[in-house]
Amino acid sequence: MTLYFLNFVLLIIGLYALVVKRHIVKKILGVAIMEYAVNLFLILLGFRKSGIAPILTEDMDLATFIHTAVDPLPQALVLTSIVIGLGTLALMVAMAIRLYERYGTFDMDEINRLRG
């Protein structure tokens, strides 16, 4: 339970950086922190203390396998979500550089030609 709570705190830190900070790079870091908090949450769902790898071989008993193996599905999900996060992050960084090129600043309060 403590782990889940700390995980939630990490998510809130990311949200704080995203909402409160004005610097574009800090906002991007906030998004990255939130993504990692969610990935960590998914990994925690499949975590089991001193668990074994989820490969069922012929010499293994099914009942003990079920009670000791970790859940493989969240790991697969997290791998996919990390790849997606990487794509989003690359796009965000490229766009931040382009924005700096156009506006000459990283401050989100000065990038306000549109009214929202």
Partner: peptide
């Protein structure tokens, strides 16, 4: 770019 970045941040959220 500004519109796209706003959309990107909120979409990522």
């Amino acid at each position: 770019l500004e519109a796209s970045f706003k959309y990107l941040i909120l979409g990522a959220l």
